[in-house]
């Protein structure tokens, strides 16, 4: 079903300058992240708050400028392009954001928001063509073409997110980066939007980078899943394998903490505090070392590289 990489990320590192204690410091939000997104694949990136998953997505299309690393798309290194050469790339890689209300201009009609990319890049052959393409795109996301004349405040959360998806697919992109696209939605609406994304992926042969904190949602839609923690990918494996048998101790802890909708399997939760350390005080070794039940002396000295442990399964752990 999937063939060859459409997007390759290698050694991506992005850091931010923050002011702490009166002086500027750099915090690496994403550290040496590498992965490939294959043609027609949905790759999930999952992790907790501040793990860097959003920054990965934003770095790929250079909404934030990475410090190091390469992003190859359609044979070119996106990171090396000048701003003007970057523009066509942004038609090939589109983003869908979490909050469909914040990402839509409240004073523009829905149809104009959907057509925006086409207007900027001259994709329309006159106004009739523009109206036709907008109507087709609205139908493709399951909305009546009459929605083009409405304003965002007239729409429900689920409808707004459909508009957000319509904006992304209008220029027929190859890749969509969806950053928490269903997190603001109720479960019954979430299921509708997830089905829509899966359908579009199939029909348009899209490749999807699906970023979310919700393991169940990521597992439902993705072919493969990457688990991030404090800027690093700690595990990357096919969905069935990673959920059935997580190899990294952090992945295992994360999976175990997800409250399952089944009262027969209750988590034997501990009330003891165990939280990620501050991003400001980072040591050389594995970022999970303080919370890890199987850590050894080596773990606090060197960061384990992401290595192949089985067919298509990558784990960054000395002891896995």
């Amino acid at each position: 079903m999937t063939t060859g990489p459409v997007l390759t990320v290698e050694g991506l590192t992005t850091s931010f300058r923050v002011k702490r204690g009166g002086r500027m410091r750099r915090i690496a939000a994403v550290k040496d992240v590498s992965f490939t997104l294959n043609q027609g694949e949905i790759l999930g990136i999952v992790g907790e708050t501040g793990c860097g998953k959003t920054t990965v997505g934003r770095s790929i299309i250079r909404l934030v400028k990475p410090e190091k690393g390469e992003v190859r798309f359609g044979g070119v290194n996106v990171q090396a392009l000048s701003d003007s050469k970057l523009r066509p790339i942004r038609l090939g890689i589109r983003m869908v954001f979490q909050d469909p209300f914040a990402s839509l201009n409240p004073r523009r009609k829905v149809g104009d928001s959907i057509a925006e990319a086409g207007d900027i890049h001259g994709l329309f052959d006159g106004l009739d063509d523009r109206a036709r393409q907008v109507a087709e795109t609205l139908s493709a996301v399951g909305l009546d073409p009459s929605f083009a004349e409405r304003f965002p405040h007239e729409l429900s959360g689920g409808q707004r997110q459909r508009v957000g998806i319509a904006r992304a697919i209008l220029p027929s992109p190859k890749v969509i980066i969806a950053d928490e696209p269903v997190s603001a939605l109720d479960v019954s609406v979430q299921a509708q939007v997830l089905n829509l994304l899966a359908d579009l992926q199939e029909k348009m042969r899209l490749s999807l980078l699906f970023i979310s904190h919700d393991l169940a949602v990521v597992g439902q839609i993705s072919d493969r899943v990457a688990v991030m923690y404090m800027g690093h990918i700690l595990e990357l494996a096919p969905t069935q394998e990673i959920f059935a048998k997580p190899k990294h101790p952090y992945t295992a802890a994360l999976m175990a903490a997800v409250p399952r909708p089944d009262p027969a399997v209750r988590i034997k939760g501990s009330t003891e505090v165990s939280e990620p350390p501050s991003r400001l005080e980072e040591a050389a070794g594995c970022p999970y070392v303080q919370r890890c039940p199987i850590a050894t002396a080596l773990c606090s000295k060197t960061m384990p590289p992401l290595r192949v442990v089985a067919d298509g399964e990558l784990v960054a752990c000395h002891n896995a």
Partner: peptide, 24 residues
């Protein structure tokens, strides 16, 4: 029943979820 049926389940086969039509 509808609410429980549309919960994502990573270990289930297939990507499509059941849905409740429309909205509240």
């Amino acid at each position: 029943r509808g609410l429980l049926a549309c919960l994502p389940n990573p270990l289930a086969r297939g990507r499509r979820l059941q849905t409740i039509v429309g909205q509240a």
